[in-house]
Write a protein that binds this DNA or RNA. Structure first.
Lengths: 204, 204
DNA sequence: CGCTGACGAGACGCTCCGTATCGCCAAGCT
DNA sequence: AGCTTGGCGATACGGAGCGTCTCGTCAGCG
């Protein structure tokens, strides 16, 4: 309904910053739209004009944060849009390296608070859940699909395996341990997951 | 602080019923303590006297529901406290059967709304999360640990495998698909998970 | 340069929160 | 059986945050 051409870029950024800061400082449940507006030096209406809920605000803020980090990491060069999983020819080593990096990332408190809050809200709010999965989760999972397909061509993964299911053998356990704190996660743990998934539980 | 001896059993049950009904009917976020009290025909203070939050109420209500279902299923006989995973000697078949039953259970709308709400709240509320994992999740996972250990004795699982990690290869993917709707789940899917986990992704 | 519409600010009615305070009545002790 | 105690349903309370609406103001487009 509003006119995007006249939208204030400054307010938009200020709202992102305020939302991320508040969620990190006082937690998602105690973060309010009124609080975000006050912190951003913005009228409430400006938030209600462009977003439907505080979850929407946080989701966009987090996506924006990701894009910024991506651009910063990329430097000046204009490279292809998405990172990829390394392919040294050794599938187990590549997967272990990526999962170790993921462990580090998940431990970064800057990412932890908002992504945990969004995951939680996505479980209960179906619409938000769809966007969360589509915009944040699936693109990452697709990288594993690609790497596993390459491994299939190299004969390191059986050809009849469905990569979209296979990746869940190591990604989902890590996600669950992180989200639900069912057990601690470490490099040793993710390494073990890769070994179990590649070579199976049964005797060979 | 209050005196449990004088506690009204009738009110307690009425509050459980009201909480479960409201969560199923209007969803967790729109369920309020005032609403539960009104529906149960109970004063608000009676809820605040015995519980700290609506999540606490729902958690106890859900646990109570589980105990009722367990007793009903058990019938008159006084059997050991917990169900177990069948052991026909065929590990793959046993796991597939249990996971198929789990799929059915997760699809039951009576369980879906409250358990999903509790899982979501547990992601953000650390204290509730601990109780949720300890009281609801871990006891179920322990059954898999037991079954996998039996399989190790029978030589169907390599002896150096850690069962607590191994079970995550098929349980976590199912949990994630259910919670986050990342992809549909079916009998074919859970069967595939068991096959991948037992025999691995790499050529044998 | 003149319009238009987003902007910051804040008032509004509303719902729900969590607390306090009523008699009332049933459980538990003597 | 009588008395005391404390949980009970009910309701009022102040406060927080919701989402809407309405002010001038002012920046950007044509």
């Amino acid at each position: 309904m509003p006119e995007p051409k006249r939208r204030s870029e400054k307010s938009r950024k200020a709202i992102y910053d305020a939302a991320l800061a508040l969620v990190a400082e006082i937690g998602y449940p105690r973060t309010t739209i009124e609080g975000i507006a006050a912190r951003a030096g913005v009228g409430k209406q400006t938030i209600y004009r462009w977003w439907n809920s505080k979850a929407d605000v946080l989701l966009e803020a987090f996506l924006d944060l990701g894009e910024q980090a991506e651009q910063a990491a990329r430097g000046e060069g204009a490279e292809p849009r998405q990172y990829a999983i390394p392919d040294t020819g050794d599938l187990a080593a590549d997967l272990k390296a990526v999962l170790r990096a993921t462990v580090d990332e998940l431990r970064d408190p800057k990412f932890e608070a908002p992504s945990r809050a969004l995951a939680a809200e996505g479980l209960v709010d179906a619409e938000l859940g769809r966007v969360f999965v589509a915009k944040l989760l699936e693109p990452s999972l697709q990288l594993y699909v690609d790497r596993l397909r390459a491994a299939q061509k190299a004969g390191q993964v059986r050809p009849e395996i469905d990569p979209r299911i296979a990746l869940e053998l190591f990604v989902s356990p890590l996600a669950q341990r992180w989200l639900q704190h069912t057990a601690p996660f470490s490099y040793a743990y993710t390494d073990t997951l890769v070994d179990y998934a590649l070579y199976g539980l049964a005797p060979r």
